[in-house]
């Protein structure tokens, strides 16, 4: 079930960072907004689970919009830092508000999330995401990543479409947050901090930026691997974060495009197997 939630998080961040090219270091913030909103609606107003989940996601999307309007004028590194900054501000607010329970968080959430609900959510998210990516909207996202200026020259209102990508990504992350809350039955602001954002980013990078299957694979590996390590030896699991760090660096140096990626052609050329393949093709051509 955790895998499913992480898959939703990874594919949604991939929409923002992988497809649209807007590096976000605050994706967990939207997960948190979804989790808190859904929980509060369910606990205080006794709204049914599914409705609460949707309200949580919609609220996250709304915040995505609000945060996106000012920050998405920024580019690259600046955007990354601004999203990080918003994430920290939001965590600070959650820590200090009464209604969110401050650092204690919210307890006593009923356990409703089950494997079927998660599976249905994952399928719906990936299905709708694929539909979006194959449409005029998704193509505009990729065009913005490829060349923002040329995208504008094609008549794409780049600011609006970046905000749209951000809001959709936030919506999905909000769903993941809601599922998370009703699975673990307890949430606090530190569940949704910078470290969680980085973890989601790691999944996307590992799988391959701009590739939904890659994000799914990355999320699966990074969810199972720590559990596996823990089952092998509790000592090793202490090194989980150290391992994350090394993984990111090595990944960037050895295979920056991730395990699966649509630029795998370049990799073929540079890898040993690729060289053999290219050579064979060249020989065939020569004969």
């Amino acid at each position: 079930m955790v895998i499913g939630i992480n898959i939703i998080l990874a594919v949604s961040l991939n929409l923002v960072s992988g497809f649209t090219g807007q590096l976000s270091l605050g994706h967990a913030t939207f997960m948190g907004i979804g989790a808190y909103t859904a929980t509060l609606f369910a606990l205080k107003l006794h709204v049914p689970f599914l409705v609460a989940l949707i309200i949580g996601a919609a609220t996250a999307a709304f915040f995505g919009f609000i945060i996106g309007v000012p920050t998405l004028r920024l580019k690259g590194d600046y955007l990354a830092i601004a999203t990080l900054g918003f994430g920290e501000i939001m965590r600070n607010i959650l820590l200090n508000l009464k209604i969110t329970g401050g650092p204690m968080g919210l307890r006593g959430i009923p356990k409703i999330t089950n494997i079927y609900i998660v599976a249905a959510a994952v399928i719906l998210v990936i299905f709708s995401l694929n539909r979006i990516m194959n449409s005029r909207v998704g193509k505009s996202f990729i065009a913005i990543r490829e060349d923002e200026l040329a995208a504008e020259a094609m008549g794409i209102n780049t600011t609006n479409f970046k905000i749209l990508a951000f809001a959709i990504g936030a919506f999905y992350a909000g769903i993941a947050g809601g599922l998370f809350a009703f699975l673990f039955r307890y949430i606090n602001p530190n569940n949704f901090g910078f470290m969680k954002s980085i973890e989601i980013l790691c999944m996307v990078v590992l799988g391959g930026m701009g590739n939904t299957s890659g994000a799914v694979l990355g999320a699966t590996i990074l969810t199972i691997l720590p559990e596996f390590l823990r089952s092998v030896s509790p000592v090793i699991s202490q090194y989980r974060m150290v391992f994350y760090g090394i993984l990111l660096v090595v990944m960037m140096i050895v295979r920056p495009q991730g395990l699966l990626s649509d630029t795998s052609f370049d990799f073929l050329k540079s890898s040993v197997f690729g060289k053999i393949k290219v050579k064979k093709i060249a020989e065939k051509g020569g004969q």
Partner: peptide, 23 residues
């Protein structure tokens, strides 16, 4: 490499050092 790769590598180094110090 592109702009994003060194940034992520930097985040990786940061996580590594932080947790190595923690251990």
């Amino acid at each position: 490499a592109n702009r994003i790769a060194p940034l992520i590598s930097a985040i990786g180094v940061s996580i590594f050092l932080q947790n190595a110090a923690l251990l």
